[in-house]
């Protein structure tokens, strides 16, 4: 096949009507912080549940001038991040990067980068469940009604029960928040550590749930408050004295992993944001 006949697809894969629909819904999502906006959600060449919502947003907003970063669990080299980046790159030709500071659009699953993001950047989050009321009201028709009336009593009961049973607000990730003092919103499975980054941020956050067919947004400088009780305040995973074994950072989200060595190996705790950790290591090596 010639080079020309290889170009079977529209720029950014989606047809222009699909992009227009998503763009219209994104504008409404921004005007309604935290509110779930239904969208048609097209089929894609990657599986449902593997980032199709985030991907449809990225493909609808990307322009040839963008620089793109894709992370999964904070890691650019995670297999699914590689795969999504490869698809976006092959259908747009945009420049890609692993450097948070160099990116104009960052698509992410389960993490917000450690490096503070700027006003000229957009963070696109892949969302699995979309509606935080799912835990207490799986029926969409009733859950939509509850959102429309800001009727979140059942959610508070759920939170209270978790305190009674576990002595704490038991939700690890996907912590529910109230946005702009109105809508209850799912934070996607970002750890609690990342939740405060949503509050009064410089950056626009866009959320896409492909299988659930919902889009939502948190505009910059918007009040985002985690659900909490006075006597059981929201806490992150932070533990005093925690430290990344690789770059020495004391204020990052850490994950454990196994490192092989001549003694058979050991468990090590390091930054989950791999590019941030590498950047710090490189800086230390440069100044050493």
């Amino acid at each position: 096949m010639s080079e020309a006949s290889d170009q079977l697809y529209n720029f950014a894969l989606l047809d222009e009507d699909a992009k227009r629909e998503i763009r219209r819904k994104l504008l409404k999502a921004v005007a309604l912080p935290g509110h779930l906006v239904p969208f048609a959600s097209r089929d894609l060449p990657i599986a449902r549940g593997w980032g199709t919502g985030g991907l449809q947003i990225t493909l609808s907003i990307v322009t040839p001038a963008d620089t793109l970063k894709v992370i999964d669990q904070g890691d650019d080299e995670s297999v699914n991040a590689v795969n999504l980046r490869r698809l976006i790159n092959r259908t747009t030709g945009v420049t890609t990067t692993t450097d948070t500071a160099a990116a104009t659009i960052i698509q992410t699953r389960h993490r917000i980068p450690e490096e503070p993001m700027r006003a000229d950047q957009i963070l696109v989050l892949q969302v699995p469940m979309a509606d935080p009321l799912r835990w207490v009201e799986p029926n969409l028709e009733r859950a939509t009604m509850m959102h429309s009336e800001a009727d979140y009593g059942k959610m508070w009961v759920y939170m209270y029960e978790s305190v009674v049973r576990a002595g704490d607000l038991r939700i690890a990730s996907q912590y529910p928040v109230i946005v702009n003092r109105r809508y209850l919103m799912d934070t996607t499975p970002i750890p609690r550590w990342d939740v405060p980054k949503l509050h009064m941020a410089d950056t626009l956050y866009l959320f896409g749930a492909g299988r659930e067919k919902r889009i939502y947004a948190v505009p910059p400088y918007t009040i985002v408050e985690p659900l909490q009780f006075e006597d059981y305040p929201f806490r992150t995973e932070y533990r005093p004295g925690q430290r990344c074994a690789r770059c020495g950072a004391e204020h990052t989200f850490l994950t454990e992993h196994f490192v092989s060595d001549s003694n058979g190996g050991r468990w090590e705790t390091t930054c989950s944001d791999a590019a941030y950790c590498a950047k710090r290591v490189a800086q230390m090596e440069a100044t050493a």
């Binding site: 449902r48 549940g49 593997w50 999964d72 904070g74 990730s173 499975p189 750890p191």
Partner: peptide, 17 residues
């Protein structure tokens, strides 16, 4: 099928949480 198999994807962050 997409959602059931997506649990093959890494969940290090959520598991750490």
């Amino acid at each position: 099928s997409g959602f059931v198999t997506h649990y093959k994807l890494p969940h290090y962050v959520t598991f750490a949480a």
